[in-house]
């Protein structure tokens, strides 16, 4: 047990070290760019995971909230002219508030009603962004979004500094999510996922806790969106499209829904495969669509869940063998 934990720590530190020094050992700007985008998407997927994976509510408006974060930042910095970090914080507050308002209503519905409701909310956000040209730039998109402003001596004009900034937020996200999941709050979410009725009868306010999960998920979507806007500096309505939500879902499902490492694993693997399969481009869903279906039937908790289950089984077997050995020993003692 402790050895496993140690191994895990070791592997994690190694991984972190690797991503930390990566920009220093490679000068491949394209690769760094892809990595930054991957980090951003991972943050968004963590938000989705908290709601869909840990609380059991499949939201199909996630890209909408991602876009909400991106456009809010764009509007606050460019149109309103606020300083970057003030706009950044306001963006997070704003997406959370919108999330709270929508969540309050959406969460009165359940299961497929919730999925359809959020699907429609996502679509409304898309249509608004698409049609409200004066504010969002419509189809042409929104250009000239500033890079993150400097904090004291830290400036974020170069790609590498952006890399570290986004990485910082990713690590922060993971730490926060880890702490939430491994706390009474996380157990509360999971109790709701497992059975809302049972959760209620053991005194859990499902209304309140579902709302917390929903707001958290929009918060992380908004955070990712804001980072995306200031990194790419140009955004278009397609980031709020349902296909974007589906992309997030694919990352989450393949990595492992309801697992802590799922979002990282899924996003990295899929983005990486997509890069390798460049020739597939628009047809990548030809591959990922069926994978999604097969996974949900045979390994519903994705790669990460598969590994966890496999480990559990191995452990159980080991225990069995050990207890058998114990019995044999006891017998020997008796016989001897």
């Amino acid at each position: 047990m402790s050895r496993l934990l140690l191994n895990k720590r070791f592997a994690l530190s190694g991984l972190l070290l690797l991503v930390l020094v990566l920009p220093l050992i490679t000068s491949n700007a394209y690769m760094i760019r892809i990595l930054i985008l991957t980090f951003i998407w991972t943050i968004a997927v963590y938000g989705l995971n908290l709601l869909a994976g840990y609380t059991g509510y499949l939201s199909l408006a996630h890209a909408g909230f991602f876009a909400l974060g991106a456009y809010t930042l764009a509007i606050l910095t460019v149109t309103v002219g606020l300083s970057y970090w003030l706009a950044f914080i306001l963006t997070l507050v704003f997406t959370s508030i919108v999330g709270a308002l929508i969540g309050m209503i959406a969460l009165r519905t359940r299961e497929h009603f919730f999925a359809i409701y959020t699907l429609c909310v996502g679509y409304i956000i898309y249509l608004i962004i698409y049609n409200w040209e004066g504010m969002t730039g419509g189809v042409r998109g929104f250009i000239g979004i500033p890079s993150p402003g400097s904090i004291g001596p830290l400036e974020f004009n170069s790609q590498i500094s952006n890399y570290y900034l986004v990485l910082f937020f990713l690590v922060l996200t993971i730490v926060v999510i880890y702490r939430i999941v491994h706390s009474l709050q996380g157990r509360t979410f999971m109790a709701i996922r497992n059975s809302e009725d049972l959760a209620k009868t053991i005194g859990i306010s499902t209304t309140k806790n579902k709302l917390i999960a929903f707001i958290l998920s929009t918060f992380f979507a908004g955070l990712a969106g804001a980072l995306f806007a200031s990194f790419t500096r140009f955004i278009g309505p397609e980031i709020s499209n349902i296909t974007m939500t589906f992309d997030f879902l694919v990352y989450l499902l393949i990595g492992g829904i309801g697992t802590l490492s799922g979002p990282v694993i899924g996003t990295f693997i899929i983005v990486w495969i997509s890069q390798e399969l460049q020739f597939l481009q628009d047809y990548r869903m030809l591959v990922f669509g069926p994978i999604l279906v097969i996974l949900i039937i045979f390994a519903p908790r994705g790669i990460s869940g598969f590994i966890i289950d496999w480990n559990l089984k191995r452990k159980a077997k080991k225990q069995q063998i050990e207890s058998m050995k114990d019995m044999e020993n006891n017998q020997e003692v008796k016989e001897g």
């Binding site: 702490r179 706390s183 009474l184 996380g186 157990r187 053991i202 859990i204």
Partner: peptide, 28 residues
């Protein structure tokens, strides 16, 4: 309607949640 795929302990621990105060901030 217990959570069949979790351990007994994991099922039970949350049972006392209603007698606790800690919230999201405590968790983070």
């Amino acid at each position: 309607n217990l959570f069949e795929r979790a351990t007994v302990l994991d099922n039970i621990i949350v049972g006392n949640r209603l007698r606790t105060q800690s919230n999201l901030w405590d968790a983070i």
